[in-house]
Simulated assay, not measured.
Amino acid sequence: MARQSLGLTTLGEYLERHSETGPLGFSVATAVDAIATACIEISGLARGGAPVTSADIILGTNADGDVQKDLDISADWLIRRALASASIAAFASEEAAKPEFYDPASLLCVAVDPLDGSANLDLNMSVGTIFSITPAPRDVSQAFRRPGTEQIAAGFALYGPQTSFVLTLGDGVDIFTLDPADAIFRLTRARVRIPADVSEFAINASNRRYWDPPVRAFIDECLAGVEGPADQDFNMRWIGSLVAEIYRILLHGGVFLYPADNRDGYGNGRLRLVYEAHPMAFIVEQAGGAASTGYARVLDLAPDTVHQRVPLILGSSEQVRRIEQFHGPEIGACTNAPLFAHRGFFRV
């Protein structure tokens, strides 16, 4: 896709060019435009401007057991309203128990996390919206049981000091920034590339005692710095917001780990495959990075359920590959840690 100079291309112009590639391209452009429109409204709510309802009120838990706030519901409603203008065969949301099926003749399926990281709202930390778009299968009931390789578009909005819209249409990654004066997203970073080897990692180190040996061995190697086998010093980051972590990696590199661990409810990881891990893995790979469970490429996994959880390790390709080495049969040659007993993608 041809790109104009930075600062001159709006998201609308960008999508208009994509819409000219054919019926599927037109449908994708329409859906992305609708989601972006909703993200502009969600950005206003996240910043506290004329909220639909109070963002601080906890309504209960969603279908997957996570705390659900008013702003989660408002974001979900805004996305649904915006997508009414698009032709969607199936829709899945973190806030809904089951996928919803509409016109089977439509070309697309859309999965969203309407407000990722909403627990951080009262801390004034960055939150965001994540989405994944796939072609509608012949049997629409299988819409959200397919591997991530079938995605044709994915992206996320980050609501921080600026509102950024990260997008891949399967041809690299571009970042748009909201111009608040005109309520328009403008291209500010084109063809984003993640450096292959950056000495920076992000993980919640307070859970170290629950980690499996391969994860612990990799982090110990990082902490050993120049005195260890990595022969370099590492910086540690942990924002606790998936959208913020991945945005930082897109711009500066490094690796993000949210592994499975031995706590109750974390045995298969914690992030959702369909609307968190799949789109983020697609974006990261399109930017030259890698995404893995430790054992397998995330995009090769097909979920059994729409809310299925998965371990997620993604970022700079060399660091992800190093973590995979710790999980592999050659771990004994890499570390003094005991061999990892599990060999599946998920635990039983």
Rank of each mutant, 00 (worst) to 15 (best):
N207A: 15
N207T: 10
R208A: 14
R208L: 06
R208T: 12
R209E: 15
R209G: 05
Y210N: 14
Y210R: 06
Y210F: 14
Y210I: 01
W211R: 07
W211G: 00
W211H: 11
W211F: 15
W211N: 04
D212H: 15
P213D: 07
P214F: 03
P214Q: 11
P214R: 10
P214T: 11
P214G: 08
P214K: 08
V215C: 07
V215W: 04
A217Q: 08
A217C: 04
F218I: 12
F218C: 08
F218G: 01
F218P: 05
I219S: 04
I219H: 12
I219Q: 03
I219G: 09
I219K: 09
D220C: 02
C222L: 07
C222Y: 02
L223P: 02
L223T: 14
G225E: 08
V226I: 09
V226N: 12
V226C: 08
E227R: 10
G228W: 00
G228D: 00
P229S: 15
A230R: 15
A230I: 07
D231C: 10
Q232V: 14
Q232D: 09
D233E: 12
F234L: 01
N235K: 09
N235M: 09
M236L: 12
M236P: 00
M236W: 06
M236V: 06
R237D: 05
R237H: 10
W238I: 10
W238Q: 11
W238D: 05
I239P: 01
I239Y: 13
I239N: 13
I239F: 08
G240V: 01
G240I: 09
G240Y: 05
L242G: 10
L242P: 01
L242Y: 03
L242A: 15
V243R: 00
A244G: 07
A244E: 07
E245P: 06
I246D: 01
Y247H: 14
R248T: 13
R248K: 10
I249D: 02
I249S: 05
L251C: 09
L251D: 04
L251E: 12
L251A: 15
H252Q: 13
G254I: 12
V255P: 03
V255D: 11
F256R: 01
L257V: 04
Y258L: 11
P259L: 08
A260F: 05
A260V: 01
A260P: 00
D261S: 09
D261T: 04
D261Q: 07
N262D: 12
N262G: 12
N262P: 00
N262L: 08
N262A: 08
D264C: 01
D264N: 03
G265I: 05
G265W: 02
G265E: 01
Y266F: 10
G267A: 15
G267W: 04
G267Y: 06
G267S: 15
G267I: 13
N268A: 02
N268C: 06
G269C: 07
G269E: 11
G269F: 13
G269S: 12
R270H: 13
R270C: 10
R270D: 07
R272P: 05
R272Y: 11
L273W: 02
L273H: 08
L273K: 02
L273N: 03
V274D: 14
V274Q: 10
V274N: 14
V274K: 02
Y275E: 06
E276C: 09
E276K: 05
A277S: 11
A277K: 00
A277T: 04
H278G: 02
H278E: 06
P279N: 02
P279E: 08
M280T: 05
A281E: 02
